[in-house]
Amino acid sequence: MVTPGIGRGLLDVVERRFLLRLIVRKELRVRYRGSVLGMAWSYVKPAIQFGVYFVALGVFLRMRDTVPDYAVYLFAGIVVMNFFGEGFGNATRSIIWNAPLINKIYLPRELFPVASLYVSAVHFFPQLVVLLVAALISGWRPTVAEVLAAVVGFLIVAMLALGLGLLFGAANVFFRDAENFVDLIVMVATWASPVLYTWGLVQAELPRWLWFVYQANPLTAAVELFHYAFWYGGTGRPALLPNGTAPIPDNLWAVGGGALVVSLVVLVVGQLVFRRLEGRFAQEL
């Protein structure tokens, strides 16, 4: 006998995979209802972002002179941050968006943040294909370590986005300001990670203790893992860049492992907070 209304968190999502697929299909239909471009928006937004940043930083600020294949370097970081930003933001808003369902029937509430992350992954993979093609054109021939780096980077971002989405999604039910904080976090995270610039420039300017704080950001590790996976091989794997800094941190795998642990901790904390508050969702909504 199981007490009604008490679930097992994310384990229930695994058992109800069919229901998860239904929610994902519903979200995709609602999102693109009446849209002319439909899934093509998965390409339009990152293309515009890439164009603006490449012209502003690559051309005007001459980043392409100091970073070989700067276009691939830039797009690898944009792909990571788009996945994180969309997954985190939509997971935060998912409970509010699905209030009619939550008020009518009981089903594992975690289904909604997970479905939002799933939709973000659906948008992520077309961008990844573009990144793969660009990397191959630039001369990229991956090694096993580089492929593994891409997998680890993806897991870091997915767990971090879901963990924060569960945490802020629960808070957003009670305080609508939470989703506004999410937008600020995503904006700051884009500039606080080596997406538009190289990590060596940061290391040269920050004091040692603040540099460790910078590296402790899981998104920093995820972006660098994607750079190592898709950009580094296409540059001929040089020891130094033209500006004299190393292209990839020497402790990349140690930082990546730490980021994986931090993301897992965030996921566990987010799940615990979500389960603690989910019993009041229907009442508050």
Rank of each mutant, 00 (worst) to 15 (best):
Y70P: 07
N90E: 08
P68G: 07
L160F: 06
A149Q: 09
G77H: 05
S120Y: 14
A161K: 06
F88Q: 05
N82K: 04
A149W: 01
M81E: 15
G85K: 12
L155M: 02
I137M: 11
L160P: 12
I96A: 15
G85L: 12
V147D: 12
F75G: 13
T143G: 10
P142Y: 01
P100F: 09
I102K: 14
A76S: 10
V114N: 04
A135G: 09
K104A: 12
A161N: 08
M159L: 10
L74M: 00
A76D: 04
A71H: 12
F124W: 13
V114S: 07
A99G: 08
E110N: 13
L107I: 00
F124G: 11
W140F: 07
V72S: 09
V133K: 04
V72N: 13
Y118S: 12
F83C: 01
T143N: 05
T143I: 04
M81C: 08
T143K: 08
F83R: 02
A76V: 08
T143E: 09
L101S: 02
L74Q: 01
G153K: 03
S120G: 15
I105D: 05
N82H: 07
V114W: 03
G85T: 14
F75P: 14
A71T: 05
V152A: 09
I96C: 14
A99W: 11
L74C: 01
V114E: 03
E86Y: 15
R109P: 00
L111F: 15
M81P: 12
V80M: 11
V157I: 09
P142V: 03
V133N: 05
L111C: 14
Y73P: 12
A76K: 06
V122S: 02
P68N: 14
I156W: 12
W97P: 00
P108C: 06
V157Q: 04
I95A: 02
Y73S: 08
F112D: 13
V151G: 02
A121N: 08
A115N: 09
I96G: 15
S120N: 12
I102M: 12
V157C: 03
L107N: 00
F75D: 13
F75Q: 14
L155R: 04
A91C: 14
A76Q: 04
N90R: 05
A115R: 06
A121D: 07
S120T: 13
A99V: 04
F125H: 11
A71D: 11
A99E: 11
A121T: 11
N98K: 06
F83L: 01
